[in-house]
């Protein structure tokens, strides 16, 4: 039997690959409680990786899509609308399967894009790796959900703010940067917080769908499921994952409400919006 310290050493970084700890995962009767705690914790590395990168990378795309959907020119608003509908209207789980099978079909050598003076090779084979391909799907997906929130916020920007900007002679990008964007962020922030929470939760799906776990390095739920298959006891591993995710959720709420306070600092106290935790979306 391993001691707790030993299983910490063996498994806390195991999700990074089998060179970072014990090569083989614990099996059958050999599994200790500490193994479950640490291996599942190690899987959280990937949940955080996917969530943080997806949120960061999707942010600008979401802003662009929201502004695009708000545009009065159908040539711009229609494609943005379609994009948002596609990713919000279908399950994330199926999107993983679909995009994985698309990525598999791309040529392995990469695609050569002929620019006039040089040839750009797009390394497509990375896309079949979860760390790249699934991240791309997550980025597109959360960009669509976030864009819808930002779009809602754009629509409810007080008319007076815009008129004030006009009165100062602001136009185009300056007006957007100084007036529209900050207000949009302030209005959308509470629901954006929730979106980030759902996104973090939905990172548990990707190793359960099409993307394979190389060298058995997967996310928290991947390991929890592994333990349940090995021990036939769902009452240990799943509550551990649940506990970790509740902590993660609280952490996100804490971090985002700090920003929320900052965004609302110029408003009188009674008018400030509070973040309410209302996760309701599943993809």
């Amino acid at each position: 039997m391993r001691t707790c310290a030993e299983s910490f050493d063996s498994y806390i970084l195991r999700s990074l690959g089998r060179d970072y700890g014990e090569r083989l995962l614990p099996r059958g009767l050999d599994i200790t409680l500490c193994d479950q705690f640490f291996l599942i914790a190690s899987g959280l590395i990937w949940n955080v990786y996917f969530a943080v990168l997806a949120v960061v990378l999707a942010f600008s795309l979401a802003t662009a899509l929201a502004v695009g959907k708000f545009s009065e020119k159908p040539l711009i608003s229609r494609p943005c609308n379609a994009f948002i509908f596609f990713f919000r209207g279908s399950p994330l789980f199926i999107q993983f399967f679909f995009f994985y099978s698309v990525f598999v079909l791309l040529p392995r050598q990469g695609i050569n894009i002929n620019l006039v003076f040089t040839t750009l090779t797009v390394e497509t084979h990375w896309l079949t790796r979860a760390q790249v391909g699934a991240l791309l799907v997550l980025v597109l997906n959360t960009a669509a959900y976030t864009a819808e929130l930002f779009y809602g916020a754009l629509r409810s920007i007080p008319k007076g703010d815009l008129e004030a900007a006009d009165a100062y002679g602001m136009t185009g990008f300056t007006k957007f940067r100084i007036v529209v964007w900050p207000t949009m962020m302030r209005l959308a922030w509470p629901s954006y917080t929730n979106e980030v929470i759902f996104l973090t939760h939905s990172t548990t799906l990707l190793f359960l769908s099409a993307f394979p776990a190389r060298q058995q390095s997967g996310d928290a739920l991947y390991y929890a499921r592994y333990f349940v298959d090995q021990t036939f006891n769902p009452f240990v591993a799943y509550p551990i994952v649940a506990g970790y995710f509740i902590l993660l959720t609280l952490l996100i709420i804490w971090g985002f409400s700090l920003v929320n306070t900052r965004l609302n600092r110029h408003l009188p106290k009674a008018k400030r919006q509070r973040i309410r935790f209302r996760p309701q979306y599943i993809r």
Partner: peptide, 25 residues
């Protein structure tokens, strides 16, 4: 494979293993 030195990539169904070779995974 697990006992050897090569990297093991496991799939639940056999046809996925073939697909993995085709796409270079």
């Amino acid at each position: 494979v697990a006992d050897g030195s090569a990297d093991l990539l496991e799939f639940p169904t056999p046809d996925e293993t073939i697909a993995a070779v085709r796409n270079g995974e």
